[in-house]
């Protein structure tokens, strides 16, 4: 009896494991995945080409590392400086603009720094530092983290001076950062897409938006097949070609939450020289 059970279990588990299909792996960011954008556009691509897209969603820094190690075919992230270095060092082929969205600064209802309604990010960040109001940072080398650090620099504030006091780096993704900000009544910077689909806001609301400095450019590139021979060059390129094509761009523009568009395609704009 027992012997037969063990046998049956072994047979059940040994059956041809996990179905194989034509697919590419895309290393991308939590913001694109969690905002639901991929859920909207990838089925369209797969329907047109028969290529399944497997998205591994990480911080931009980690996603570039995955590309560097050859563990993805395509990298789709948002940190132009890091992306350009990635290409320059020969890890990726030509980088292309895909779309942008924008960051917003969110904060508690009480707004202890008194910045609600501002359009000047630098001034707002300065106020936060001055009032020592708690600010939650991703602290995870992500594209958002890199953008946040640039904004502090532009504001002339060194947040490291408030580290552990009002400036709190949690080393996690966008969602956990917002969860923490909500729980602690703190400020945080987030991409609009994640914010719109984020549910656990408690008292959190947008306090700063619409500053040109908050724009967030996404780029896409093929992992260099000369470095990693197994990279699915053809299918990966097919994805890149599609996402910058009118069809792909229209799909991006068509993704809305509550009628609000999250990402703005701009592939037509040539990549400015590095």
């Amino acid at each position: 009896m027992f012997r037969r059970l063990i046998l049956a279990a072994a047979l059940a588990l040994a059956t041809p494991a996990f179905a194989q299909e034509r697919s590419i792996t895309v290393a991308s960011t939590t913001s694109t995945e969690q905002s639901g954008l991929f859920g909207h556009i990838l089925p369209i691509f797969t329907r047109e080409t028969g290529i399944a897209v497997r998205v591994v969603a990480l911080g931009t820094g980690q996603a570039l590392d995955v590309g560097r190690r050859g563990d993805a075919d395509v990298v789709f992230v948002h940190d132009r400086v890091a992306e350009q270095r990635f290409v320059r060092e020969g890890h990726g082929l030509e980088r292309q603009h895909v779309m942008f969205n924008d960051f917003v600064i969110v904060g508690p209802e009480a707004d202890p720094a008194g910045i609600a309604g501002s359009r000047d990010t630098a001034a707002a960040l300065k106020r936060i530092a001055e009032s020592r109001a708690p600010f939650i940072s991703r602290g995870d080398r992500s594209g958002t983290h890199a953008a946040e650090l640039r904004l502090w620099q532009q504001a002339g504030v060194d947040p490291a001076s408030g580290r552990g006091v009002w400036y709190r780096e949690i080393g996690q993704g966008m969602g956990p950062t917002l969860n923490t900000a909500a729980a602690q009544g703190a400020y945080a910077m987030t991409d609009r897409g994640t914010w719109l689909s984020f549910r656990n806001r408690q008292g959190l609301r947008i306090v700063v938006e619409g500053d040109a400095r908050l724009f967030n450019q996404y780029g896409v590139m093929l992992v260099n097949p000369a470095r990693h021979a197994h990279v699915k060059r053809e299918d990966g390129q097919r994805f890149i070609d599609w996402i910058v094509s009118p069809a792909g761009q229209a799909a991006i523009a068509g993704y809305k939450i509550n009628g609000e568009q999250l990402f703005f395609p701009n592939a037509a704009q040539a990549e400015p020289g590095a």
């Binding site: 969690q34 996690q172 993704g173 966008m174 969602g175 956990p176 994640t194 549910r199 656990n200």
Partner: peptide, 8 residues
Amino acid sequence: LETSKGDL
């Protein structure tokens, strides 16, 4: 994933 999306 759902936790980090805030859908507790």
